[in-house]
């Protein structure tokens, strides 16, 4: 019996070791991504609303020129702490396509809360045509879609530099330390002071990258806080009922052993 338990333990450990190797395989040959400290790290982490709002501002003023986030709606801004009026005002800054109207024509109008985030290009072909043949990916779930998640986004945004001696950079490409293959079509878009934050936070590249990474992490997993809160409660509940059940089991089996 005892020996068998050991065997089982070894198997479980073995399986665990295998599975933990899984993320490594996906990272491929890319440089190790530095670990950034985010407020939502760890199992009890939550989003920093001020950071998310600043991150949205960075997205709005910088990223949204090329990248869509078509899974998000302006109403979602209420979830990161904007008031209804603020969110309505932010939405109204964008013109979205609506229609057809009674004349059968499409028309533009200011966005409402129920509208999806405006797409910068009408379709993928237009996006490629405007971007030297490269398609800027939709950012709605980018943090879930990249190994390393928010850490990777942060590293990528701060990883631009001149190529090392002898590195052959393709036409229209940019060198980035953390992009797989180091050649990325996206230029370095964050420059110091580019975004003026209303709350007085310094518009440094580091701050902008950090905030927009947080914002994208929230956009990819808006359920994260609710999920973790619920998880803690459910596991506590299970531990208690598990103890009770085990006690009942001991009692039931007492006269057999």
């Amino acid at each position: 019996m005892l020996r068998f338990r050991n065997l089982l333990g070894a198997l479980v450990l073995g399986a665990g070791a295998l599975l933990s190797a899984a993320p490594a395989r996906a990272a491929g040959e890319a440089v190790a991504i530095p670990d950034t400290r985010f407020s939502f790290d760890g199992i009890f982490g939550t989003f920093d609303r001020a950071s998310l709002q600043r991150g949205f501002q960075v997205y709005k003023e910088v990223c949204s020129a090329c990248h869509s986030m078509h899974l998000l709606s302006y109403r979602n801004l209420l979830e990161i702490g904007f008031t209804g009026d603020q969110a309505r005002a932010l939405a109204a800054q964008f013109q979205v396509m609506d229609g057809p109207n009674d004349q059968g024509e499409m028309f533009e109008r200011p966005a409402r809360l129920s509208d999806r985030f405006r797409r910068p290009f009408p379709n993928d072909q237009a996006a490629r045509a405007a971007n030297n043949g490269a398609l800027p990916p939709d950012l709605s779930v980018i943090v879930k879609a990249r190994p390393g998640g928010a850490d990777y986004i942060h590293a990528l945004l701060t990883g631009y530099s001149d190529p090392p001696e002898g590195f052959q950079l393709g036409q229209g490409m940019n060198y980035n330390k953390y992009f797989p293959g180091h050649q990325i079509a996206m230029p370095n878009v964050l420059n110091p002071g580019q975004v003026q934050f209303a709350d007085g936070t310094e518009g440094s590249v580091e701050n902008m990258a950090h905030d927009v990474s947080s914002f994208l992490a929230w956009a990819a997993e808006p359920e994260l806080e609710q999920r973790r809160r619920m998880g803690v409660r459910i596991i506590l509940f299970l531990v208690v009922i598990g103890g009770l059940t085990y006690a009942v089991k001991r009692k039931v089996w007492a006269d057999v052993h």
Partner: peptide, 24 residues
């Protein structure tokens, strides 16, 4: 009740592992 209760113990351990995956 012997194996219904013993299975229940295993079931709760299983739920805990499941919950760790789903929630965290």
């Amino acid at each position: 009740p012997y194996y219904t209760i013993k299975d229940s113990v295993g079931l709760i351990v299983y739920f805990i592992v499941f919950a760790v995956l789903v929630f965290f």
